[in-house]
Amino acid sequence: MADSSPDTTVRRPQDLLGAVPYLLGYHPGDEIVAVYLAADRRILGVAAEPLRFSAEALSEHLMLQAPAEPCAEVALIGYGPPPIRPVLTTIGRILDLFWPLHTLLWVTGSRCVCLLDSCSCQASRGMDIDPATSAVATQLTYAGMVALPSRQDLDTLIAPDLVGQAETEAAVAALAAPDAAVPGLLDDVLTTAKSGQRLTAAQLAQLALALTHRDVLETAWSAVCACMWQRDLWLDVTRRVPDRYACGPATLAAWCAWRRGEHAMAVVACRRAVREGPGSQLTRLVTSVVRAHVPAHRLRRPAAD
């Protein structure tokens, strides 16, 4: 995550299990989660992968998503039924070649078991858990972070807002010169969003049309950063523009989510971008980067702020 994640320190398995849903943005299920830790046990980053790949491919994906800051240990958590155990232990052996394993937890339902040999933590004997009641979960909730019920619920954050789409459609129809470029539009939009204001239907109509032009879309892409206000902006635009205009904003929403380390959200936004149209070269580029699991800290292009 990027600019809104408070420092979280791990002292026991309950801390890990309480933090993961809030740092991912949703409660994981049938997934492998890696938590990258600093020497002082601060959480540096979190990555999650669904169980659709082999243990070797999952290990590669998790290694690629390691944070730029030096990682001292990695905690590995597998969420799912008993067949996940051999996959989890294989990934643990692979990752342990690169970082010491802090812990290796298997979570099924409300039960957690530590699979590390010779471990004496509470989870080594198995324990009942409720991540929502942990002190870390309370801390992160107080900091304004949210954990959706599942990865699938991320779709709701970018699903069409039918009322907003109708308002934008009416504003598009009312434009005097719908094909004319509006000088300074992008700057005005970014200034409005950065000040915490929501775009009007008139602004959305102009922006929706502008983003169908390659040069405007690429200029907007160059201005995307990892700030929360940009995340809110591009998700809101994607939801409120008519479907035929959603490809460009969804591409920008995906890029912003990727810049923030929100890989699952980036995947959902890419899916929306591709679904709503053939897309541009930029859409295909962003989708390729997201699907390749390339982490944002490897970006050579200077970050926009």
Rank of each mutant, 00 (worst) to 15 (best):
residue 275 R to Y: 05
residue 174 A to D: 14
residue 144 G to N: 08
residue 2 A to W: 06
residue 287 T to H: 14
residue 58 L to H: 05
residue 226 A to W: 06
residue 97 L to I: 02
residue 29 G to P: 02
residue 58 L to W: 05
residue 218 E to S: 10
residue 186 L to Q: 00
residue 241 V to K: 08
residue 230 Q to I: 10
residue 112 C to R: 09
residue 145 M to V: 02
residue 187 D to H: 08
residue 136 V to W: 02
residue 247 C to T: 15
residue 17 L to K: 01
residue 297 H to S: 03
residue 48 A to N: 07
residue 240 R to A: 12
residue 177 A to W: 10
residue 70 P to Q: 06
residue 183 P to A: 13
residue 237 V to W: 02
residue 303 A to F: 02
residue 29 G to V: 00
residue 236 D to R: 11
residue 181 A to M: 11
residue 198 R to N: 08
residue 75 A to Q: 03
residue 268 V to Y: 03
residue 281 Q to I: 12
residue 170 A to Y: 11
residue 73 E to M: 07
residue 253 A to Q: 07
residue 138 T to A: 08
residue 74 V to T: 13
residue 109 G to Q: 04
residue 57 A to V: 13
residue 181 A to P: 05
residue 160 P to A: 15
residue 297 H to I: 00
residue 46 V to H: 03
residue 117 D to K: 12
residue 300 R to C: 08
residue 254 A to L: 09
residue 230 Q to E: 12
residue 113 V to A: 07
residue 191 T to P: 00
residue 193 A to T: 10
residue 219 T to G: 03
residue 163 V to K: 13
residue 269 A to F: 04
residue 13 P to T: 07
residue 299 L to I: 06
residue 270 C to W: 03
residue 148 L to W: 07
residue 231 R to P: 01
residue 18 G to F: 01
residue 297 H to W: 14
residue 144 G to Q: 06
residue 78 G to N: 04
residue 145 M to T: 09
residue 158 I to Y: 07
residue 233 L to H: 05
residue 88 L to H: 11
residue 253 A to I: 09
residue 210 A to I: 07
residue 30 D to R: 02
residue 126 G to Q: 12
residue 40 D to V: 06
residue 214 R to C: 09
residue 115 L to K: 04
residue 179 D to C: 01
residue 255 W to N: 13
residue 9 T to C: 04
residue 157 L to H: 14
residue 137 A to G: 08
residue 146 V to P: 02
residue 161 D to V: 05
residue 259 R to I: 11
residue 125 R to L: 15
residue 284 R to S: 13
residue 235 L to D: 11
residue 276 E to I: 00
residue 158 I to R: 04
residue 97 L to M: 12
residue 30 D to P: 02
residue 31 E to L: 00
residue 25 G to A: 05
residue 79 Y to C: 06
residue 300 R to K: 14
residue 207 L to H: 09
residue 290 V to T: 05
residue 248 G to Y: 08
residue 296 A to T: 00
residue 132 A to M: 10
residue 142 Y to N: 04
residue 156 T to A: 15
residue 99 W to F: 15
residue 40 D to Q: 13
residue 178 P to F: 10
residue 168 T to L: 13
residue 64 L to W: 05
residue 115 L to S: 10
residue 61 H to T: 00
residue 136 V to H: 07
residue 235 L to Y: 02
residue 14 Q to V: 05
residue 17 L to G: 01
residue 92 G to L: 00
residue 158 I to A: 15
residue 103 T to Q: 04
residue 231 R to F: 08
residue 27 H to D: 03
residue 167 E to N: 07
residue 42 R to V: 00
residue 293 H to W: 14
residue 208 A to T: 09
residue 25 G to F: 02
residue 202 A to S: 13
residue 2 A to G: 15
residue 212 T to H: 12
residue 36 Y to N: 01
residue 81 P to M: 10
residue 106 W to A: 05
residue 249 P to V: 15
residue 106 W to D: 00
residue 130 D to T: 08
residue 167 E to P: 02
residue 258 W to F: 03
residue 305 D to T: 09
residue 296 A to Q: 00
residue 206 Q to M: 13
residue 266 A to H: 11
residue 229 W to H: 15
residue 189 V to D: 06
residue 158 I to H: 08
residue 107 V to R: 12
residue 262 E to I: 04
residue 232 D to F: 01
residue 67 P to V: 01
residue 87 V to G: 11
residue 44 L to P: 04
residue 159 A to I: 07
residue 230 Q to S: 05
residue 5 S to C: 01
